[in-house]
Design a protein around this nucleic acid. Structure first.
Lengths: 135, 135
DNA sequence: GTATTTACCCAGTTATCTGGTAGGTAATAT
DNA sequence: ATATTACCTACCAGATAACTGGGTAAATAC
């Protein structure tokens, strides 16, 4: 499994926020109920999105979360990389200290690299707007 | 991570076996040493491949494992599906009892299905022969 | 037949990840 | 002051990954 609930929930929340009246702050409780996601678990996800500047948050009554860009300003890839940490389908393409010791003679490495690029290209080519409109 | 060591080791072993003299039986010990894979862990992988008829195994001295088809007779997808169980990048595309309750209204589902088909097509289009020759 | 070499079987282990939960603090509006 | 909201720290149970150990069964060599 390449994408866990964390990333999938994050995507659904972004789509949900995109569907609300522009500029309005939506409380977490409302999002959790509408999307049938545990409120406590969603907290952790929203914090990630908020810290990374994907959404704006305001405290207190009347507060909540809202998008700060138009839906086409968010690629699916940017949200998934943030919440999942990485979209790499195998560890083989990691560089630096985590690199595989057999990378210089591995017959499958070029395949993993190709797959990596394919998946990245796939997710970067889709925006929240595309999910909204079903394009 | 979509492909664990199990599937990656299985691919490397298949490539290794394809490189040996045709028809020869290669003992597990030799494969494990050449590919730097734990002998015990490799046992479990070879058993899967053997039971599924991907390789032939003979017991006793002079025994071991060998391929029973030409390298182009094995797709990477068939080996990975066997050892990994599934190549589905998300659980969302599962059918039957494990199906997602929101599948009828999920804005992201078409994307997951498209990704699923893309990954399957990718792996099914590559054979052990391709890995051997670096095509 | 006995020893050796091999594959095969079953069970346990350690570490990490997933998908949460519990309880409290800080900021904002009324 | 109170209610509402986001934010923070910590914990937890179950699953999975990646092995490891201790055997048994089959085939060959002597």
């Amino acid at each position: 499994m390449i994408v866990s609930t964390k990333g999938r929930y994050a995507l659904r929340v972004m789509v949900y926020l995109a569907q609300q009246s522009p500029g309005a702050y939506i409380p977490l409780k409302q999002v959790a109920e509408a999307e049938e996601i545990s409120q406590k678990y969603l907290e952790a996800i929203m914090t990630i999105l908020s810290k990374a500047g994907m959404v704006e948050a305001v405290h207190g009554k009347g507060g909540g979360y809202r998008l700060n860009r138009p839906p086409e300003g968010y690629t699916v890839g940017s949200i998934l990389k943030l919440t999942e940490g990485s979209l790499a389908p195998v560890s083989c393409t990691a560089e630096g200290p985590a690199a595989c010791s057999r990378s210089d003679c591995c017959p499958a490495l070029p395949m993993w690299e190709k797959l990596d690029r394919m998946i990245d290209g796939f997710f970067e080519s889709i925006t929240i707007r595309d999910l909204l409109t079903g394009t």
